[in-house]
Amino acid sequence: MAAANLTAAPMAAPGYGKRSAPDQAPRGRDDFAHLPTREAYIAAHIDRLPDGAAVDIKTLAKELPAYGQQAVASALKALTDAGHLRRIRRVTGEGRTQWVSRWFFSRTPRDNAWWDAFLHSTEGPPAAPAASTLPAGEPPQGQPQSECSQAYIALATLGCSDPRLTLSAAECAALETLAAEWFARGITPLAFARILTHDLPDVIQCPGAFTRRRLIDRVPPLLPPAAQAPPAPPSQASPPRWMMECTVCGIPGPPEALPDGLCRACRGVEPTPDRPDPADVHTHVTRLRTIARSGGGSAAT
């Protein structure tokens, strides 16, 4: 099964791109015979790429002209389902923390238990999600990301409290200053989510505009300095270093929230607006408590 010319395989920025999983079976003719033709072709292509190669949807679609971005995205989802692929976001960098996306590939299919054990052993404890959803086909290959503010994190995770307030990356960035004013007035992440998602209408046509209105109308009063809570003491534990990302759309989350490496939407499981999934609620509350204990700032610090 021939793959594209690999002598000029595009490489991702340092720290990004493909990583080969260990303990794989020797390469053979029938490595991907259990997959459909398209998925087997793309898997064989990724298998032969060197570590550090760019394997995002856009790059693969350019390298494999027989398939467009939608076809590549569907194939990557199938490879994730089959246990060949996992995508994580790793904190790295010296002097300034950055998040980079890495794609771990295994020629030998693995189950969730194997992937979880491998990622925990090589990457350390997973981090709480600290970034917004990315459009399908647009992972941040080659674009190092700086730390997210407490306000941005709170906005990006509103959809975990209630899907009707799921915001895009652009909306989170546009509303970040307004949200930051809430935290400057002593509001906690849990209270922020509770106030903004309380008593929502049944249908919200424009979550960004609706959230902007609430941020302005319901901003908490200024508290005297003595009434503000003291800063939390710095944690002595080692900070978590990575989080799972959905292979298709790039949304980050803890491993237990992304079974088989896919988010609920990409698995075709949509939450009911008036009945959020209990696991999602638990994950969201745990994440906000972690942020609150850290005294604000990035979830990666």
Rank of each mutant, 00 (worst) to 15 (best):
Thr157Ala: 07
Pro224Leu: 13
Asp23Phe: 05
Ala44Pro: 04
Arg289His: 13
Ser101Val: 14
Leu222Gly: 14
Gln141Leu: 10
Gly52Ala: 14
His34Glu: 03
Asp217Leu: 05
Ala33Asp: 08
Ile88Met: 06
Ala169Trp: 01
Tyr152Ile: 10
Ala13Val: 02
Pro26Arg: 12
Asp47Thr: 11
Gly295Tyr: 06
Pro273Tyr: 00
Cys249Ala: 03
Asp162Pro: 08
Ala154Ile: 06
Ala180Thr: 07
Val219Cys: 15
Arg110Asn: 05
Gly142Ile: 05
Ser106Met: 11
Asp162Lys: 12
Ser20Asp: 11
His34Tyr: 00
Ala117Met: 02
Ala73Asn: 04
Ala136Arg: 15
Asp202Lys: 04
Cys206Lys: 11
Ala265Asp: 12
Tyr41Arg: 15
Glu245Met: 08
Phe183Ala: 08
Arg194Gly: 04
Thr37Gly: 00
Ser146Phe: 02
Arg89Ala: 13
Pro233Tyr: 03
Ala292Leu: 06
His45Lys: 06
Ala170Pro: 01
Leu119His: 10
Asp274Tyr: 01
Leu85Thr: 12
Leu35Lys: 08
Arg86Asn: 05
Ser149Leu: 05
Ala53Trp: 02
Asn112Met: 13
Asp260Pro: 00
Gly297Ser: 12
Gly296Leu: 06
Val219Ile: 13
Ala226Gln: 15
Pro129Tyr: 11
Ala33Thr: 06
Arg264Met: 05
Thr301Phe: 06
Ile291Val: 07
Ala279Trp: 00
Ala44Tyr: 07
Cys263Gly: 07
Phe118Asn: 10
Pro233Ile: 09
Met1Arg: 13
Pro252Gly: 09
Asp81Ala: 02
Val219His: 10
Arg90Asp: 05
Thr211Asn: 05
Glu256Asp: 14
Glu176Ile: 02
Leu35Met: 10
Pro139Asn: 10
Arg96Asp: 08
Gly137His: 12
Ile195Ala: 06
Thr108Gly: 13
Pro189Ser: 08
Pro233Trp: 02
Ser168Met: 04
Ala43Glu: 12
Ala13Trp: 04
Val100Ala: 13
Leu196Ile: 03
Ile187Thr: 15
Arg185Phe: 06
Leu64Lys: 10
Ala131Arg: 15
Pro225His: 09
Ser74Pro: 00
Asp47Gly: 11
Gln24Arg: 13
Phe32Glu: 05
Arg29Ala: 10
Pro254Gln: 13
Thr188Cys: 04
Arg218Met: 07
Cys148Arg: 14
Ala169Lys: 14
Asp31Met: 08
Ser294Asn: 15
Glu270Tyr: 04
Leu196His: 04
Cys160Lys: 14
Gly137Ala: 10
Arg38Ser: 02
Arg27Ser: 10
Ala21Cys: 11
Ala257Gln: 14
Pro189Thr: 10
His34Ser: 09
Glu171Asn: 06
